[in-house]
Design a protein around this nucleic acid. Structure first.
Lengths: 216, 216
DNA sequence: GTTTGTGAAGTATTTCACAGCC
DNA sequence: GGCTGTGAAATACTTCACAAAC
């Protein structure tokens, strides 16, 4: 995977591979679970057992960002969790907008897992005039032409897209034009975006299709 | 990524990396779209432009399975699509069960994207006695203890899991014990499974958390 | 005695580049 | 002239293995 961001530590400069960054949230999740269980110290071996990774990989990944452990003892769960959350920018709340309030969009709005993790869906848009003005999950659905204004007003940098394939590229272009830097895409297609915009696709059909090869 | 399956072609034997298999469904999706548009021939360059991959990678990936193109012309869309669908096992219908018919499970059941792609959700299970016996999306919710019997009856090898984190490991173990070989997991946790069982996780929160690092 | 942090070694994956074919 | 298929080269990523720290 491509190298993706330069991090300066003690004046030295090193590049963190994107694949390493993509694993940090899993560490955060495991550490949160340990913390909730009252565990105060964990070794890379134990953490690796929890999430099916080798201890060496965990230590190597962490070493891109600093030295968080103690030889002979392991890592303080609270300290490492705090550091990783800070590194990932999870020590703050993020405002998120949803584009597309159809069946899937409404399911996303009613999913209770985003808020507690610091992702607040505070605005929703739809191209359908019949949806605009309706209240969905406590949010007033806005017309597409108000996007720039609304994103600005709330300081939104993240979008979740749940529109039909035929509209995805246009929606992405508009979001990027409004300064959005990260998009979760639920539509089964890969829109073009500039290199400085991150996209993660959620596609259960692709997930299924990538496994049938291995079934009898 | 680890090598994963041995394919014999003309008596020769080669190992296909799992990462290559995981990209084939994207090729299938792009080729399906081209076919629907009436395009009959495509080059690796054009295909690469559609899905943001290099032409060399596409050609290399395809070369693990055979020789599907014509020098100077490119690939027949219909032919390549058919071959890839056959290779992935998408030239048949797959029966799928859902475990967990709460809010998320019901959204999955009502998602219209699975059936047309050959994945039919034909059974549903839940541990909650109040759910058992109810009809959800035309399917009768079964108790967990009938899993083996029902999977056998329908010939189900694929499961979708949408249960609370606290129940995921137990559900996975039961599914594996019933012979399921592929699982799409919507719960935010990584259960242990034997190496011969495939798992794909769907987790929008993890997706969001892996992008905030790159935002200002 | 245990476990980290990390260069070095080992694999895996991607890209190059070109012969061969249309 | 254009494009595939593919060894070889380049790059990316993972694992090893051990000195240093507790």
């Amino acid at each position: 995977m491509t190298s993706e961001r330069i991090v300066a530590i003690f004046g030295a400069t090193s590049v963190v591979p994107e694949i390493v960054v993509s694993r940090l949230p899993q560490y955060v999740r495991a550490l949160t679970s340990l913390n909730d269980q009252g565990v105060s110290v964990v070794s890379s071996q134990q953490l690796g057992d929890m999430i099916q990774m080798t201890p060496a990989q965990i230590r190597k990944d962490l070493s891109y960002f600093g030295r968080f452990g103690k030889q002979g003892r392991g890592y303080s769960v609270k300290f490492l969790l705090g550091e990783l959350r800070r590194i990932l920018g999870l020590d703050r709340a993020w405002k998120v907008c949803l584009v597309g309030v159809g069946r899937l969009g409404r399911a996303i709005l009613s999913y209770p897992g985003f808020g507690p993790q610091g992702f607040d869906i505070v605005a929703a848009f739809d191209a359908d005039p019949r949806q605009v003005g309706q209240m969905v999950g406590g949010i007033m659905v806005q017309p597409m032409h108000r996007m720039e204004e609304v994103l600005d007003e709330f300081g939104i940098q993240i979008a979740i897209v749940a529109v039909p394939v035929s509209q995805v590229q246009e929606v992405f272009s508009q979001l990027v034009g409004c300064g959005v830097g990260a998009i979760v895409n639920y539509a089964p297609t890969n829109p073009q975006v500039p290199h400085n915009v991150r996209v993660r696709n959620i596609d259960p059909v692709l997930a299924l299709q990538s496994m049938t090869f291995y079934l009898s």
